[in-house]
């Protein structure tokens, strides 16, 4: 019963925001404002300390420390293959670190029992890169899936909740479509509606902008920021789309070769003196990350081949 109450209260607040176009944070007497305010107290929702993780003899993270502030949008950025997605899987308890702690709302994820981990996951939402919609269910049933699995709400209430979530992502009219009939951007928006179905305390986005056309990208950028603010969530975005991510992030972490290279607000990082940070943020083809993969001297190698012939 407790669960049902919390859903109703938060969903009504969210629907108020989207249905009437009123930003509740600006309303002085709103209980919602107080709730959001209490969440924006600057404490960390996710606290990673001394994280070490690797596989197949390769170290992915080596003594990484990261703090994700409550109520903020934090972006984890870095070149492909730096383990950004792995970091989300570690926070979600789908991978286990070699050492270090990953505290989410005070609980050390690697040490949680299976039941406690599943309880924690009910309070987390994750948007996968592919959307990961269940292909045998239509849009409506996909969004209803977590509600049907975790609550005993009557079907009428589930219908209302699903329509509210779909309205929030602009796809209420697509509720009868199958996932195969959706474009990539629409699939991600449906997956986003499903991820927020249980009103999570935090959302994790895995490369939300990759492969999107400019309009879909703009929609997703707007949605991520608005959902974070309207639902009082904490957001972690993993991405290498610098401009889009920096435009909505409150704080950035730059990862490379298993380490946090630099972190700070987008404005501060843009002023950074670090050559690596500049190369990454400005997309320069050469710099501390060389254009050429390590190889012996080119002229020497050509001469060796000529000599052997």
């Amino acid at each position: 019963m407790k669960r049902e109450h919390s859903i109703q209260i938060k969903v009504l607040s969210a629907s108020g925001y989207f249905e009437h176009g009123v930003n509740l944070r600006t309303m002085p007497d709103s209980g919602w404002l107080r709730m959001v305010g209490s969440m924006l107290d600057g404490s960390s929702l996710v606290e990673i300390r001394g994280l070490r993780f690797g596989y197949s003899g390769r170290m992915i993270f080596n003594e990484v420390d990261i703090d994700i502030q409550r109520g903020k949008v934090t972006a984890i950025m870095g070149p492909s293959g730096t383990g950004k997605t792995t970091l989300l899987r570690l926070i979600g308890g789908q991978e286990y670190p070699s050492s270090g702690t990953i505290r989410v709302d005070g609980a050390n994820v690697p040490e949680l029992s299976r039941n406690n981990l599943y309880q924690l996951r009910k309070r987390m939402g994750m948007l996968f890169q592919s959307g990961a919609l269940l292909t045998d269910l239509n849009v409506f049933d996909n969004v209803a899936f977590p509600l049907r699995e975790h609550t005993d709400l009557p079907e009428m209430m589930i219908r209302d909740l699903v329509l509210i979530k779909l309205q929030a992502v602009g796809l209420r009219g697509a509720r009868d479509l199958m996932p195969s009939a959706l474009s990539g951007g629409m699939a991600r928006r449906v997956a986003l509606a499903r991820a927020i179905a249980l009103d999570p305390m935090m959302m994790m986005y895995d490369e939300p902008f990759s492969g999107q056309d400019p309009i879909s990208m703009g929609v997703l950028v707007k949605l991520i920021r608005e959902l974070n603010d309207a639902l009082g969530m904490t957001t972690i975005i993993v991405s290498h789309d610098v401009n889009e991510t920096a435009s909505i992030a409150d704080y950035l972490y730059l990862l490379s070769e298993g380490k946090v290279v630099e972190h700070g607000t987008p404005e501060r990082l843009r002023q950074s003196g670090s050559e690596w940070t500049r190369q990454f943020l400005e997309g320069l083809p050469d710099g501390p990350v060389p254009f050429h993969y390590p190889a012996p001297d080119f002229a020497e190698e050509l001469l060796q081949v000529s000599a052997s012939q």
Binding site: K122, M124, A132, L134, A191
Partner: peptide, 22 residues
């Protein structure tokens, strides 16, 4: 296999739904 390849099983796990049971 396709559910695994398209991250549907992972997404279920993240929705606190055990794919083994469901």
């Amino acid at each position: 296999g396709l559910m695994k390849a398209t991250e549907q099983l992972s997404s279920m796990e993240m929705m606190a739904v055990d794919p083994m049971r469901r």
